[in-house]
Design a protein around this nucleic acid. Structure first.
Length: 575
RNA sequence: CGGGGUGUGGCGCAGUUUGGUAGCGCACCUGGUUUGGGACCAGGGGGCCGGAGGUUCAAAUCCUCUCGCCCCGACCA
């Protein structure tokens, strides 16, 4: 491609409404252009990088025997009602009526459509297993699109689905995906970790996420440096800190006017924070019933864990609701003497035989000296969020918590969809059984964003060569000089013949502009054709390490091909 | 959805407090001088100031409503 004729709108200044590095650089480098909140056009450079990533994905998917298909994004809502997800996902589902008045959805994912195909086409265990995948735009009405390509409302996803006759097959195909995903992300030049995750709205048994550690990430992941344990905080476990505990001579009610927070009350009573019992009220979205959750005062609730326990989403109760149900304002709640119909859950990190201090269910009063073992009908579970520094459950080393970008997610779905939609097959024993499914997603735009987050420097993007929009840029300085142009043109033609992706900067711009632009858009190898052609030389510059070398014009193509090969190998060797 | 911010040529911003009909830098066009890290000189084009309504002789500026975008909190590739 000749830059002179290309659409590569670069900017010197940071755009005002970008926050994270990848977003700023993608806008500045002419990779993407925003249309509206969470909607972006991929400009030529961006789309070329996307195509590179897709090529890698297709190769690896095809390699595990997956078959590429293409499903409609426009779906009648009825199919989403069959599985109940029209309701479960209603918050993020784009829906609208067509001219006949039928309700439609723009698909946020494709389990339903896959199951629809499967229930018609799969008859026998002999038809299984199957892996079907597609690369398709997904639509999710995110409450808050942000951070450029990291969180958008329409995005390109590679999604695959496995259909199996038994659980062993599912394990096998799930593992195939895990391996394929490792290869895909490694070949895209990313650094990532595979972590245990929650299956959330997808349902199912096991799930793992592929995470790129980055400050721009929106997930938080717990890591053990020592043994390698890693899990999304939604599912992560840890050994809580010991805490310190005081003895109360007996049960007592204490006047605590205006003292509401754990911090205030613990100071006033002289009780360690960990010995305070924090009583939170949540509401089950399913039946609207209130739930009381008890935690150590120094711990934080994890809503995802709670909703998994409940089997449905939850929300914090409004203060008015609390007043209505308990007759006291938040801040003075406790498990002693709550109305009978209220479900009480306690986090297992609070020792059952230790005395606690908590609200008295009476305004301006707290109580001390009770134990959880004395509270009737309490259910125990893991409801807390792991905190930095707590001990690893596997090896006891201190854990760290980092933010991460989720680039891939694999799920063992089981029979949730096949049962809901009647997708069955005849097994060897002649029985009709629901197909056992798995689903596996990759956010392709996030691959690009992650690469930029990982490798950019103060001059701009540094693409891993495997997903770079171009592998080589020829920077012709002073295009008014015929010897420069002649050499540049010849290199351009010869490199393309050698199968190299080349961008030829043939613009009549000053050297500084061209160098800055080349750095900004992050092309891995730059060939500078300038005054050194007088001595028969050009310069080869490697973006990644800043190395430069002068080579004879006649050796330039070979040398460039060698460097390109080396850069690719550096990535491929890590696979 | 709640809270905060912002909207002025393609981009980044000033002007709004104190109404008088729009300005700066980058980019763009013409000519010239320059030419290995975002040049310089001269000239030029482009915006009725997010939208609607109102107040006023007069509105980017004041009032009302509305929309977009960004940021902070609950979801996901």
């Amino acid at each position: 491609m000749r830059w002179n004729k290309a659409l590569i709108p670069t900017f010197k200044e940071d755009p005002s409404d970008a926050e994270v590095i990848s977003h700023k650089l993608m806008l500045r480098a002419g990779i993407i252009k925003q249309l509206s909140a969470g909607l972006y056009t991929f400009l030529p450079l961006g789309w070329r990088a996307m195509l590179k990533a897709m090529k890698i994905i297709r190769e690896e998917m095809d390699d595990i025997g997956a078959q590429e298909i293409f499903m409609p994004s426009l779906n009648p809502i009825e199919i989403w009602e069959e599985t109940g997800r029209a309701k479960d996902m209603s918050e993020i589902l784009f829906t609208f009526e067509d001219r006949k008045g039928h309700r439609n959805v723009l698909a946020p994912t494709h389990e339903e459509i896959i199951t629809h195909i499967a229930r018609d086409e799969i008859r026998s265990f002999r038809d299984l297993p199957q892996i079907w995948y597609q690369i398709q735009n997904k639509f999710r009405d995110e409450p808050r699109a942000r951070f450029g390509l990291l969180r958008v409302r329409e995005f390109l996803m590679k999604d695959s689905y496995s259909l199996c006759a038994n659980w062993e097959q599912l394990d096998e195909i799930y593992n195939l995906h895990e391996r394929a995903y490792r290869r895909i992300f490694s070949r895209c030049g990313l650094k990532y970790v595979v972590v245990g995750a929650s299956s959330g709205l997808m349902g199912g048994s096991a799930s793992q996420e592929f995470m790129v550690p980055s400050d721009a990430g929106e997930d938080s992941t717990v890591f053990c440096e020592k043994c390698g344990y890693a899990a999304n905080t939604e599912v992560a476990e840890s050994i809580p800190s010991e805490g310190s505990w005081v003895e109360f001579p007996g049960r007592k009610k204490i006047h605590t006017p205006f003292l509401k927070t754990v911090d205030e009350v613990s100071k006033f009573l002289g009780v360690p924070q960990n010995q305070m019992l924090k009583s939170l009220i949540y509401v089950s979205q399913k039946d609207g019933q209130p739930i009381m959750v008890l935690l150590r005062g120094d711990h934080q609730l994890n809503e995802e864990k709670l909703s998994r326990y409940i089997g449905g989403t939850v929300r914090p109760a409004h203060p008015e609701e609390v007043l209505e149900w308990f007759g006291v304002p938040v801040g003075f709640l406790g498990p002693v003497g709550v109305p009978k119909n209220i479900k009480i859950l306690a986090d297992k990190a609070f020792p059952i035989d230790k005395q606690f201090a908590t609200g008295a269910n009476e305004e301006d009063y707290h109580i001390v000296g009770w134990k959880l073992s004395e509270i009737p009908d309490v259910e125990f579970g893991d409801f807390r969020t792991v905190q930095e520094g707590e001990k690893c459950v596997k090896c006891g080393a201190p854990l760290s918590v980092k933010t991460t970008i989720e680039i891939g997610h694999i799920f063992k779905l089981g029979t949730r969809y096949s049962e809901a939609m009647g997708a069955t097959f005849t097994d060897v024993d002649g029985e009709q059984k629901p197909i056992i499914m798995g689903s596996y997603g990759i956010g392709i735009g996030r691959i690009l964003a992650s690469a930029i987050e990982l490798y950019a420097d103060e001059n701009g993007i540094i693409w891993p060569i495997t997903i770079a929009p171009f592998e080589v840029i020829i920077t012709a300085l002073d295009v008014t000089k015929s010897d420069v142009v002649d050499v540049a043109e010849k290199l351009y033609a010869d490199l393309r013949s050698a199968g190299v992706d080349v961008l030829y900067d043939d613009r009549d711009e000053r050297a500084g502009t061209k160098f800055k632009d080349a750095d900004l858009i992050g092309i891995p190898i730059r060939i500078t054709v300038g005054r050194k052609v007088a001595e028969g030389n050009v310069e080869i510059f490697v973006r990644k390490d800043g190395s430069r070398q002068d080579v004879r014009v006649e050796d330039a193509v070979n040398r460039t091909v060698e460097i390109r090969k080396k850069l690719i190998e550096e990535i491929e060797n890590k696979v």
